[in-house]
Design a protein around this nucleic acid. Structure first.
Length: 481
RNA sequence: GGCCUUAUCGUCUAACGGUUUAGGACGUAGCCCUCUCAAGGCUAAAAUACGGGUUCGAUUCCCGUUAAGGCUACCA
């Protein structure tokens, strides 16, 4: 089983789950599920300065909400734990020592001040800023002694002076980078914690990761990682670097130009199915014209070969449309459950659950968000408090009140109160009065719902019920004179 | 600045040298349906960044230019 697919999502817990992060996690997850492999969550919290309290829990919660569940990771365990890097420091130190012993890394005692000076000088001379390798050739014995004596130091990797490295990226093909543009990267910081570069390689190997699927921002440091695999004598995983997600102005997706946290979208009422479907399609497509995909559909169809190379703009309009599509695919029962919660939250009430179910069915093709049910269909759950000004102006004439009153009386006296009988009654009354049905329909809608738009009037009235309808009509006739 | 990556309608994208008057979707506009709003149906406008090659033939391959993004930290 050593060719088993094992992939991971390795975020650093510095805030909320970013939509770009969700997509990376999702692609890893889909790739694993598609191949029958494992998806691992590893928390990369090696930067003590950037650590944010509660971020990891928040991240795990949001991932879980999205339906991107991991097989191994924090709060879950697995055969290769711990899955939180701050709990693995001893492992990284051992590995750094190994590199040191083999002459593939060295102690560096340069102070941050010196480094800053060097960099400043290089910039002034229009040279590319990089570490000047001041400590690279310090006699081994000396530097061992200095380090042992407690002199502040970091461990740096030795990058070959000349030559270049070519690696194969599953998405981009061959990528070549010259060693001379690579720094002697710090592997172990002076606080004893590893940098990303050491930790990622050690963990990916120890956790038997087969494919590293991550953002494009890592592509230029990949040669360093491969070098480390070589230094350790390990076989390297396959690499796949995903294109970035962009703002509408094509800069890297960021706050400022809209929400980037998955939980923001969740709070706005987007369905997990819609968000997942949407981010999956930012850089991937099934190759045909289908667009509405469930998680299971995605798992079935997803392949890295169909992932594109160019960055994708996060386009909210399409997300909205997808949300609408997924609302329509949801069962009425499931929607009713959510709507009921919203009704209670907003202090509104319903006669019984079957009533909610009927409202859900009636409005289903008119909502984009589940909350639209209670926002645009509030009159199903409470008395209208105001009447739409535009509708009033457009549909309410001086003689309307009298007509509405008469119509209310007719409806009140009906044997049966259902959409057929209501329609019949409205049409008959219109004909007798010598007016078009529309002259009655629009004001009635306004009277009953307070709004000038909504589902079919007769169905709506039947659902609200005779008593309330008649009462609302009479009240509106009085109020709107 | 250096290095790396990328480049098809406004946006997401299809096309894996010829089946292409470059297809679909979102959005936009119009029409139909219609009690309003949606939904649905039909239609329209809308793209291969630019310049060179290679080839009988380039959206597709190569080179250059331009533009955008990423990296260039004891951050990930």
């Amino acid at each position: 089983m050593d060719n088993a697919v094992r992939v991971r999502f390795a975020p650093s817990p510095t805030g909320f789950l970013h939509v770009g992060g969700l997509r990376t996690a999702l692609y890893n997850f889909l790739f694993a599920r598609h191949a029958g492999g494992k998806f691992i969550l590893r928390v990369e919290d090696t930067d003590q300065n950037r650590k944010v309290e509660g971020a990891m829990e928040n991240l795990i919660e949001t991932l879980h909400w999205s339906g991107v569940d991991y097989d191994e990771g924090p709060n879950k365990g697995g055969p290769f734990g711990p899955y939180i890097q701050s709990e693995r420091v001893a492992i990284y130190r051992d590995h750094a020592r190994r590199l040191l012993n083999d002459g593939n890394a060295y102690y560096c005692f340069c102070s941050p001040e010196r480094l800053a000076q060097v960099r400043q000088r290089q910039v002034e001379m229009k040279m590319p800023p990089s570490y000047d390798r001041h400590c690279r050739d310090l006699p081994r014995e000396d530097s061992m002694k200095r380090a042992a004596a407690g002199e502040p130091h970091v461990v740096r990797m030795k990058v070959p002076i000349g030559g270049e490295m070519t690696f194969d990226d599953l998405i981009r093909g061959h990528v070549t980078i010259a060693y001379k543009v690579l720094d002697d990267q710090v592997l172990l910081k002076s606080d004893g914690y590893p940098t990303y570069h050491l930790a990622v390689v050690v963990d990916d190997h120890l956790m038997q990761i087969s494919h590293v699927i991550r953002g494009e921002e890592w592509i230029s440091s990949t040669p360093k990682h491969i070098l480390l695999y070589q230094y350790f004598g390990w076989s390297q995983p396959a690499f796949a670097h995903l294109p970035l997600l962009l703002n509408p102005d094509r800069t890297k997706l960021s706050k400022r130009q809209g929400d980037v946290a998955v939980e923001d979208y969740r709070a706005k009422g987007y369905l997990r199915e819609a968000i997942v479907n949407f981010v999956a399609f930012l850089g991937w497509n099934p190759g045909d014209e289908r667009e509405i995909f469930s998680m299971d559909d995605l798992i079935k169809e997803f392949t890295l070969e169909r992932v594109g190379k160019a960055g994708a703009v996060f386009n909210i309009e399409k997300l909205n449309w997808l949300n609408q599509q997924h609302v329509r695919r949801e069962s009425n029962e499931a929607l009713a459950g959510t709507v009921l919660t919203l009704i209670n939250e907003r202090g509104m009430s319903v006669p019984d659950t079957s009533y909610v179910l009927r409202v859900v069915a009636l409005m289903k093709e008119r909502v984009t968000f589940v909350k639209d049910y209670v926002e645009f269909g509030d009159y199903f759950f409470k008395e209208p408090e105001a009447y739409d000004a535009e509708g009033r102006k457009k549909y309410w004439e001086p003689e309307t009140s009298g007509r509405i009153l008469s119509l209310a009386d007719r409806l009140h006296g009906l044997d049966e109160f259902n959409h057929d009988s209501i329609e019949e009654s409205v049409k008959a009354f219109a004909e007798q009065s010598g007016i078009k049905p529309a002259k009655l329909i629009h004001p009635t809608r306004l009277a009953v719902s307070g709004r000038s738009v909504g589902p079919g009037l007769y169905e709506m009235m039947e659902l609200i019920g005779r008593e309330k309808v008649v009462e609302r009509m009479r009240r509106a006739a009085k109020a709107l004179g």
